[in-house]
């Protein structure tokens, strides 16, 4: 099992959700996050005074998938979340050791 963590633009969330759903993914966890990469922050104003927002809001999507699904899911996320401009986000894949479905006690692949 692998965990796919994708940090994406807010307005791409719906597209990413539909794209991974189409690959048979049944669930995901989404959170509001802030941070910066190469895009850096942007300027806002308050009564004429400028300030910089260093940490831009993004959405983090977390998915746990079978090893065999990883490549196709990564393709799907990249395809759906890409605009081609700086600030599209990043994807990280890590190893997952155990998974348990609380309601039934099923574990690992059966729990996904």
């Amino acid at each position: 099992m692998k965990k796919i963590e994708a940090i994406i633009r807010h307005f791409k969330l719906e597209d990413v959700k539909n794209a991974v759903n189409a690959k048979g993914i049944q669930g995901m966890t989404v959170s509001e996050v802030r941070g910066f990469g190469r895009q850096k922050g942007h300027k806002e104003m308050f009564r004429g005074a400028e300030y910089t927002v260093d940490f831009l809001p993004k959405v983090k999507v977390e998915l746990i998938v079978n090893d065999s699904q990883v490549d196709s899911i990564l393709d799907a996320i990249v395809g759906a979340a890409k605009t081609g401009n700086v600030g599209d986000g990043k994807i990280f894949v890590t190893e997952v050791v155990r998974a348990v479905r609380i309601r039934t006690g099923e574990s690992d692949d059966a729990a996904l």
């Binding site: 807010h10 307005f11 509001e32 300027k43 104003m45 308050f46 809001p57």
Partner: peptide, 15 residues
């Protein structure tokens, strides 16, 4: 348009 935010300091959902 304005370079402003309505609720600065709140977490803003942009979906």
């Amino acid at each position: 348009e304005h370079g402003n935010t309505a609720y600065h300091g709140f977490v803003v959902e942009k979906v």
